[in-house]
């Protein structure tokens, strides 16, 4: 029973990711991306990446709390989709927004702390995505767990990246920050038992 549930969960994640990616294109073609489409694409891809990041972090607590060990099978998939949307987000910024104008980016954007935060989080995500496969996992042995614990700092940096961008009212980033802290505390306390 439970093994078929995980199959459904994985299928659902594929469909959801495909749907939300497709929706961006659909809305673009139908002029539904607000008056400021680049900003809207940036916001959406960023938000999807962050939500999936939080879901990745919730796998271990779900496994322990509900005894649903199979969920770990979906963790890599969720994590890779988070990386997928982070990649769309990154190239929206670089290509759509700044037209790969590296002069402009290097001159006055790169020094902004929200850019530094977002970019460092993305670099770490590349490393984690690249070592998420079984081969790498086997080769790294116990080191793999230490390396992939970096997902917690990544999540915190991403929340800062978000908070530094809003004009005022950090309510939404704060919500994600709280959720991530709770998940970390939950995981640590569950592992101790």
């Amino acid at each position: 029973m439970k093994s078929s549930l995980i199959v459904w969960i994985k299928v659902f994640i594929h469909i959801a990711a495909l749907y939300f990616t497709g929706l961006i294109f659909w809305d673009y073609l139908n002029d539904q991306l607000t008056a400021n489409p680049i900003e809207e694409i940036t916001k959406r891809t960023g938000k999807y990446a962050l939500i999936l990041l939080v879901l990745t972090l919730s796998c271990t607590p779900v496994k322990i709390l509900f005894g649903f060990n199979q969920i770990i099978k979906a963790r890599r998939q969720i994590g890779l989709y988070s990386f997928f949307f982070a990649t769309l987000h990154f190239f929206t910024f670089l290509g759509l927004d700044y037209s790969f104008d590296f002069d402009l980016i290097l001159k006055d954007v790169i020094k902004k702390r929200f850019v530094i935060a977002g970019f460092s989080a993305y670099l770490i995500l590349i490393l984690l995505a690249a070592t998420s496969f079984n081969n790498a996992r086997r080769k790294l042995g116990r080191q793999w767990y230490n390396l992939h614990a970096l997902i917690y700092p990544v999540a915190s940096i991403v929340v800062l990246h978000f908070a530094w961008l809003v004009k005022s009212g950090v309510l939404e980033p704060l919500l994600y920050g709280t959720l991530i802290s709770l998940l970390l505390i939950l995981k640590l306390s569950l592992l101790k038992k």
Binding site: A35, I38, S99, D108, K112, W164
Partner: peptide, 19 residues
């Protein structure tokens, strides 16, 4: 003179693509 958190050197003109 940048906003402390973001650049003011360029802008996105609504209705146009790019900066």
């Amino acid at each position: 003179v940048d906003h402390p958190r973001w650049s003011q050197a360029s802008e996105r003109r609504i209705g146009e693509f790019g900066r």
